[in-house]
């Protein structure tokens, strides 16, 4: 059963969930809820259409609904710093932690677009499908998301030192 097309996307769903939900456990909970819905609704997926966008759309909906059902103001959630992830063995740990904090200060709609473009490396049309918004909106959110992230980082005085060690 492991060669099912949905299964291939699980690592990417986990990556996206980690960026959305913060810690590993809540992220995997989000993935699990997403997968449950995906398996149950799989008959609604149109063969030949973009399965990845479909799965990410489900994750988006599940996440937004979870936020709502917890009756939390999304903006409040965004203000809350995520539990920092310790990557002490990596030389760039400090900079990445700053980046993560800056990312968490973005609104959910900005964060999602930026993550789908930068990390998931979706084309704008794919992001549009995954989030159910027009391409123009993708572009304007992306533009604002990058600019705000830049300002947050620069505000923290880290832009010059943001080194990425691969």
């Amino acid at each position: 059963m492991d060669d099912h097309p949905i299964v291939e996307h699980i690592p990417r769903l986990r990556r996206y969930a980690r960026a959305l939900a913060g810690d590993r456990y809540s992220a995997d909970d989000l993935v699990q809820d997403t997968l449950e819905r995906a398996w149950n609704k799989y008959h609604l997926w149109r063969p030949g259409s973009d399965l990845r966008a479909w799965l990410f759309a489900i994750m988006h909906n599940v996440f937004v609904n979870q936020m709502r059902s917890r009756r939390l103001d999304l903006e409040q959630v965004m203000e809350e710093p995520p539990s920092p992830q310790v990557r002490a063995t990596q030389p760039d740990a400090l900079e990445l932690a700053d980046l993560e904090r800056a990312l968490s200060r973005l609104s959910l709609e900005h964060r999602e677009v930026l993550l789908l473009v930068a990390v998931e490396q979706m084309k704008y049309e794919e992001v549009s499908r995954a989030l159910g918004i027009p391409v123009g909106t993708v572009m304007s959110r992306l533009s604002r998301a990058r600019e705000r992230l830049r300002q947050h980082i620069e505000g923290a005085g880290h832009i010059v030192s943001l080194k990425v060690v691969k």
Binding site: P11, L99, V119, L149, K166
Partner: peptide, 13 residues
């Protein structure tokens, strides 16, 4: 920033 985000989350893969 994009590269940083990837460095941050790619290890999950």
């Amino acid at each position: 920033l994009d590269e940083g985000l990837r460095a941050l989350y790619d290890p999950v893969l």
